[in-house]
Amino acid sequence: MLKKRIIPCLDIKDGRTVKGVNFVDIRDAGDPIELAKRYVHDSADELVFLDITATLEKRKTLAELVRKIAKEINIPFTVGGGINSLEDARIVIDAGADKVSINSSAVKKPQLISEIAQEFGSQCVVVAIDTKLENDTWKVFVNGGKTATSWELLAWATEAERLGAGELLVTSMNNDGTKNGFAVSHLAEVSLAVNIPVIASGGAGTMHHFKEVFENSKVSAALAASIFHFGEIPIPQLKQYLKTQQIPIR
């Protein structure tokens, strides 16, 4: 049976992980490679690296980092952040990333989704969508959630699929950071509306929250950052719990 995936997300700035980490047995918590290897060891199913370095001159650092990650880890990984063109995508894919994630650039230039899909295959293109509930409507936001767009979530999700997205990473901004649980109802809607995998993101605080989103929506994966980095929920423990709850887990 196809398993639900558990995906830790690592924020990278200038080649270092930025959020605090709390693994006692890691010598250098700022070293993305050491952290990534730890997650592989803990049976994470996939990893996402989000580069929050805004400047162009740091892009080379990212390619170098991706090359090192690809040498070291033996599970799939996605790289996102600041990918604005086919050329940007090519740099990280050539360096060894399995997938690229695009967000604001996809909204600004939707044909970028098709360009990357045609060049590298749909399975390489993750469209990340930041969404916030406003006046009873889930609206799409860009620029790190700062700028509203005219897109409504379901419309943009189906358009991204039509253009060739291979997967959607949907972050519910109202929930992000709250640890009050995933925004299950709209994740259920969006995962029904498309026929590509949806990764749920934003709001995970307890192991029960993962069970809840997997039981009540068709999402294929759930992503979280700080609860994993700070060791609040160790991944092996989370996976063991989900197995006892009859969720298909590796």
């Binding site: 196809l2 995936r5 291979g166 026929n195 590509i196 068709k218 294929s220």
Partner: peptide, 11 residues
Amino acid sequence: PLDIVPHMGWN
């Protein structure tokens, strides 16, 4: 197309 295609993930 009876389920999500591509088949992506651990099986």
